[in-house]
Each structure stands twice: as structure tokens, then as C-alpha cells.
């Protein structure tokens, strides 16, 4: 059975060259940035798939391609077996569009400051001419706000409350899939817990499927059923949270887990990871992680490892499974 979302060979290339005239004068070649490269995964219905990675890993680009804000350069995204890019029947496109929603990172930029809350959160329905009687009030109560809030403007709410409004808007069209792009990274810890709990509750109540994008491993561990780790636009490992955190198969995953600050680790003296993320317009040969990898051998420089099954998950490493966590788990 394929999942609700099926992603095959997804690739996105951006042209980051200087303007045409500068290129001619300075005799520069075109510069292409491959933000996402040959990423494939499935998300079964009613589960949470998390994408983690550091800056430049392409996680947000994948999110935008899934919801249709960006067109893939190659590969495709199928939702319920429908590819929005190639589908021509407007009725089907419309149906799939109502099935997908997104929650953004910045709760201040994602609500139109000149609109009232009622209009904001019912827009996914009103834009299609649907009936919005009492809808705003119902949604507000669902996300833990009050019915009277419908008449207010976004600036009258705190960051956490705004993110609740974004959740309410995402629920308005009764979607099946919600893509969450760093939904809590702009929030304070205690408020982050509120929003994450709310999202878990709603998933249960509405049978939602989440694609959860984050840089924060601890948040992802808490929310996900399956975690995909991205490095420089490629999926390097995919596993369940338990096996990923206990026995990471890819050295990059292990490095991330080791580097993440831990509460119980005061006075912990661990060698910090080496190196930084390379320039994505000029990625290293072979396995992109080899310059920073403690296990790297000659084959890693020459040949890019394929994503192959490993245990219950998948991993792209020539030396899969040889890595050890530094800190005691």
C-alpha cells in the first residue's frame, strides 16, 4: 500500500547566478544550486513524517513542493495518487488543494495584519465559496481560543496564540495532510509545548497526517512516527524515532544526536563535531558528508552511496551501522 503522500525522485534546482549582464562582463558561468536531489519517501495516512536537517538541507524546499508552492525540477509528489503538477481536471485539483494545508514558521508574518481573525481562519473555505456560518467560532474553540476572538486583529495576540490561529486556519478546509514548516521554532519553550500538544491532540481527533519539518531533533523525536534525515538536499537516513536515536546508522545522524544539547548533561565534555556544512552550490564528490565523517574511506570520496534498506529503515552510507554515539544514551 502506498501512503497518502508519495514522493518519487524529487529534485529542485535553483538558478543562483548573478544577473545576465554581470555574468557577461565578469565571464562567470551560471551557478546552479541543487537544493533537493532525488528524494523519495512515502507518508502513510494518519502518521507523522518528520524531515530534519540543518540549514541548506532542503527541508523547507521539499515542504513547498509537497503543498504545490514550488514546482519540482524533476520527480513528482502524489497526494492520494494525484500529481498536482500534471493533473488537468480542475475539480480534482480543487479537491486535492482542500486536502493540503500548511503551518508556517513565523506566526507574525503568516497572518495578514489587516484582516480580522474571522476572515483569516475561514479564508480556505470562503475562497471557494463555502459556507462559513459559525465556522470561525468552532475552529477557535478547537484550538483553545475563545469565540469572541473572531472579531480581533492578529496583533492583539501573543506568539503562541497566533500559532494557534494558524492551526485553526489550517483546519478550516478539513484537510487530510498538514505540512508544518518549523511550526514552533519561533516560540518560547513553554508555549512550544502547548502548541505541540495541541497538534498531537488534533491529529488524534481529526485523523490528520503531518509532514513535520524541523531542525530540532528533540522536537522531532517527540512528534514523529518516522524521521527522515536530510544532508545537503539528500535523504541520508530514514527510521523510526526509537531506532534512530538508539542506533543511528548514518554518521551524520549520530553527529546531530551528539551535538544536540541535553538537559541531563551538565559538565558533559564531548568533542564537538568537526567542520561545517559545505557550500551547496559546490558539494563534495561522492558522499557529501565525507569531509566531516569519522568513518570516511576512499570509496566515500569516489562513489555516492545509495539509499538502501537497513533494519526497518533506510540509510545511504557505505559504512552503515558502524557508527557509535559519543555520549552515553
Amino acid at each position: 500500500m502506498t501512503g497518502l503522500v508519495s514522493i518519487k525522485g524529487l529534485t529542485r534546482v535553483f538558478d543562483v547566478s548573478k544577473p545576465w549582464l554581470n555574468r557577461m562582463i565578469e565571464r562567470l558561468p551560471k551557478r546552479m544550486l541543487t537544493a533537493v536531489s532525488d528524494v523519495s519517501f512515502d507518508i502513510p495516512a494518519k502518521t507523522t513524517y518528520a524531515l530534519v536537517g540543518e540549514s541548506g538541507s532542503g527541508k523547507s524546499t521539499i515542504g513547498k513542493m509537497v503543498v504545490g508552492l514550488l514546482r519540482p525540477t524533476e520527480g513528482n509528489v502524489e497526494i492520494d495518487g494525484i500529481d498536482l503538477v500534471t493533473e488537468t481536471d480542475p475539480a480534482i485539483i480543487d479537491r486535492i488543494r482542500t486536502d493540503i494545508q500548511m503551518i508556517f514558521q513565523d506566526p507574525f508574518a503568516s497572518l495578514n495584519p489587516r484582516w480580522r481573525v474571522r476572515d483569516i481562519i475561514t479564508e480556505p473555505v470562503s475562497a471557494r465559496g463555502g459556507n462559513i456560518d459559525g465556522l470561525a467560532e468552532k475552529l477557535l474553540v478547537q484550538v483553545g481560543l475563545a469565540e469572541e476572538d473572531a472579531g480581533k486583529y492578529p496583533h492583539q495576540f501573543s506568539g503562541g496564540q497566533r500559532q494557534r490561529l494558524c492551526v485553526a486556519r489550517a483546519l478550516a478546509s478539513e484537510p487530510k495532510l498538514i505540512v508544518c514548516d518549523e511550526p514552533t521554532s519561533a516560540l518560547d519553550v513553554s508555549v512550544q509545548a502547548q502548541v505541540l500538544n495541541l497538534m498531537s491532540d488534533l491529529k488524534e481527533d481529526h485523523g490528520l497526517t503531518y509532514l513535520f519539518i524541523s531542525h530540532d531533533l528533540t522536537v522531532v523525536r517527540h512528534m514523529a512516527d518516522t524521521i527522515g534525515v536530510l544532508y545537503l538536499g539528500r535523504l541520508v537516513e530514514e527510521a523510526s524515532p526509537t531506532s534512530l536515536f538508539n542506533e543511528p546508522a548514518h554518521p551524520y545522524t549520530a553527529m546531530l544526536i551528539d551535538a544536540a544539547p541535553r538537559l541531563d548533561a551538565f559538565g558533559r565534555e564531548v568533542e564537538p563535531p568537526e567542520g561545517e556544512i559545505p557550500d551547496p552550490t559546490d558539494p563534495p564528490s561522492g558522499c557529501a558528508f565525507h569531509p566531516r565523517c569519522p568513518l570516511a574511506t576512499d570509496i566515500c570520496k569516489a562513489e555516492r552511496p545509495k539509499l538502501t534498506p537497513h533494519g526497518a529503515g533506510r540509510v545511504a552510507c557505505h559504512h552503515a551501522g558502524q557508527v557509535r554515539l559519543k555520549g552515553a544514551a
Binding site: V67, F104, E123, S173
Partner: peptide, 13 residues
């Protein structure tokens, strides 16, 4: 480029 515009594009405005 603000996210509220992206949210509107997303729903097919």
C-alpha cells in the same frame, strides 16, 4: 514573500 501570501496561494487564490 511573507507567509500569509503563501498561505493564500496555497489554497488556490
Amino acid at each position: 514573500n511573507k507567509e500569509y501570501v503563501q498561505a493564500a496561494r496555497l489554497i488556490g487564490r
